[in-house]
């Protein structure tokens, strides 16, 4: 087995000052399982250690700031927004986010005054990782996965968002090959902000739909 550990071994996250900490016998259950899977994949020639490493690096390189750039562009450019809603993968490629052909397709769901979207994967933890980075732990929890479909309004309330009764709540369960990203509503009072300033208001949670973007601080009085 390769001694070039991949993402199964997170010993580097803590620095390398504890060399004993990465001994196989002390690895946790999941770390050992991932190492075994990596070894099988490479031994069977399904992929190389380098390919695994590149896939890990690509995932780690993405963060909610990337999704926020897409949202901010949609807020300032209505033609881009139309392209994003019609064919999200092609539209985000315009911003430099090229998705490999084997990555799941992306659909963007727009929040309006009348509709609010919330994304979940009740079967596992499907998430638009190639645009938002790794999902938060709560997204993968059994609690969120079951409650998001049964009681979406209760879930958003716990994230600080009280949805009005006249707003249609639409829960998107990503059960198959499509990943969903919420296009949140642009907050009021942001008319004068630049695209970069707008992007800073867009949170990860608002693109999952459990909350709304930040509202800008009012300008300090002179």
């Amino acid at each position: 087995m390769s001694n070039q550990h991949g993402h199964g071994d997170h010993s580097n996250e803590q620095g390398s000052s504890h060399p004993g900490a990465s001994q196989d016998a002390e690895l946790g259950h999941y770390a050992r399982r991932v190492q075994a899977l990596e070894a099988l994949l490479t031994e069977k020639g399904i992929c190389t250690q380098g390919e695994i490493q590149r896939a890990v690096e690509e995932t780690e390189a993405r963060s909610p700031a990337d999704g926020a750039r897409v949202v901010a562009r949609a807020w300032v450019d209505s033609e881009f927004k139309a392209r994003l809603l019609a064919n999200a993968k092609a539209a985000v490629a315009e911003l430099g986010y090229e998705a490999a052909a084997d990555l799941p397709d992306l659909v963007v769901a727009e929040n309006t005054d009348k509709q609010h979207h919330l994304v979940v994967c009740t079967l596992c933890s499907c998430y638009p990782t190639w645009l938002l980075g790794r999902p938060p732990d709560w997204y993968k929890s059994l609690t969120y996965r079951s409650r998001a479909v049964v009681d979406p309004r209760g879930v958003t309330r716990e994230f600080g968002l009280e949805l009005e009764p006249n707003v249609e709540v639409r829960v998107l369960d990503s059960t198959a090959d499509i990943r969903y990203l919420v296009l949140p509503q642009r907050p009021d009072g942001t008319e004068g902000l630049s695209e970069e300033e707008l992007a800073r208001l867009v949170t990860r949670d608002s693109m999952v739909g459990v909350s709304n973007p930040h509202v800008p601080e009012p300008a300090p009085a002179d």
Binding site: R153, E168, V171, L172
Partner: peptide
């Protein structure tokens, strides 16, 4: 879908099938 769903009647759940 859910017996005893407490939200308004317009609420929807959507899944890929």
């Amino acid at each position: 879908v859910w017996e005893g769903y407490t939200g308004p009647g317009d609420d929807r759940v959507l899944a890929d099938v």
